[in-house]
């Protein structure tokens, strides 16, 4: 019996969501009085022993070259083998793009119940219950997993990373890897940008910005805050911004620490993608814009005047 935490990586580095998953998994293990181990498929440039600081005692690694080409089927089979080899009973993923592809496969392969998008530690007082957002963040469900093996994917940005003392031992797992049937032929990444789903701060623009030529000030503000940029649906529908920036019920759902909405009216479908943000700031020239009802802070005024000023003030703070 142990907790096995999947460690996801891209471009030779472990992703932020994995640190959250490691902290969470270690806490789940502590709660049940069992051990916690990480599982890394492929190779990274990061030091694996130092992952002990998140509370795990061991990192299991399958350093097969083939695993640097992501194929959900190959990954799932490898994870299932690792679960059998380690005797893990609880498997944790970050519910990022990789987690969404792999966690359900692993769950089905092991006949394990899956709670996807969990935001709390399991409540084990009566079963094994985790809370997760449903109805696109308009509500939460408490989901009980009743199978012997349990799979949880942790919603990004919902569990605080904790570090302490400790190093992990690294163990090479000998698992044979199947040839992939999905071949990656190209990767299109906007370099230098903070990925939206990992960002602590998100600066988002709506139709109120009038056109793509006005996004310079949004990018300046985002840059000053080390934030990711996002947009409302009509903005990406009109190709002012790329599809992967569209947040909302039919776009990406995010839960950053800070969401700054500029020239966005706050339609219910937009709110559904951002309502779990910890702090929401709304800048809109219409005092009746529905977004103000969902906001923590707001400024009624013209974005074209306020946003550059805001960037200046934040620069002052950064330099203070």
């Amino acid at each position: 019996m142990s907790v096995l935490i999947f460690i996801d990586h891209a471009d030779s580095h472990i992703k932020k969501g994995s640190f959250e998953a490691l902290t969470y998994g270690a806490d789940v293990a502590k709660q049940s009085g069992i051990g916690a181990e990480g599982l890394l498929l492929g190779t990274v440039n990061d030091d694996l022993a130092s992952l002990g600081k998140y509370g795990i005692s061991k990192v299991q690694q399958v350093s097969d070259e083939g695993l640097n080409n992501f194929d959900a089927e190959v990954y799932a089979k490898a994870i299932e083998e690792a679960v059998k080899a380690t005797g893990a009973t609880i498997i944790i993923f970050s519910q990022n793009q990789t987690g969404k592809a792999v966690a359900p496969r692993v769950a089905a392969g092991l006949k394990a119940g899956l709670a996807s998008g969990a935001i709390t530690l399991p409540d084990t007082s009566n079963g094994f219950v985790v809370k997760k957002p449903v109805f696109s963040g308009k509500a939460f469900a408490n989901v009980n997993i009743s199978s012997a093996i349990k799979v949880i994917s942790l919603s990004p940005n919902s569990y605080k990373v904790n570090t302490g003392e400790g190093t992990a031992t690294v163990n090479q797992l000998n698992i044979s890897i199947a040839a992939p049937s999905v071949k990656i032929t190209a990767v299109h990444k906007v370099s230098g940008e903070v990925p939206l789903t990992e960002a602590d701060i998100v600066v988002s623009g709506g139709r109120g910005l009038k056109g793509p030529e006005n996004w310079g000030m949004i990018e300046d503000l985002a840059h000053t805050l080390h934030a990711a940029t996002a947009c409302s649906r009509p903005v990406s529908d009109s190709d002012w911004r790329p599809h992967h920036e569209h947040v909302g019920q039919t776009g990406i759902q995010i839960a950053p620490n800070l969401y700054i909405a500029i020239g966005i009216s706050g339609a219910i479908q937009h709110l559904a993608g951002v309502n779990r943000s910890k702090t929401i700031v709304v800048i809109n020239k219409d005092p009746e814009a529905p977004f103000f009802k969902a906001a923590d802070y707001g400024i009624v005024g013209d974005a074209f005047e306020i946003v550059p000023r805001l960037t200046e003030e934040i620069k002052k703070l950064n330099n203070a």
Binding site: A107, A139, N142, S147, F292, Y297, G298
Partner: peptide
């Protein structure tokens, strides 16, 4: 079925916007 929903909750209402 390997999971079941025990109960639902609605999010805590926002305290109200602070306008600047």
């Amino acid at each position: 079925a390997l999971t079941n929903i025990v109960s639902f909750e609605l999010p805590a209402p926002k305290a109200g916007v602070k306008l600047v």
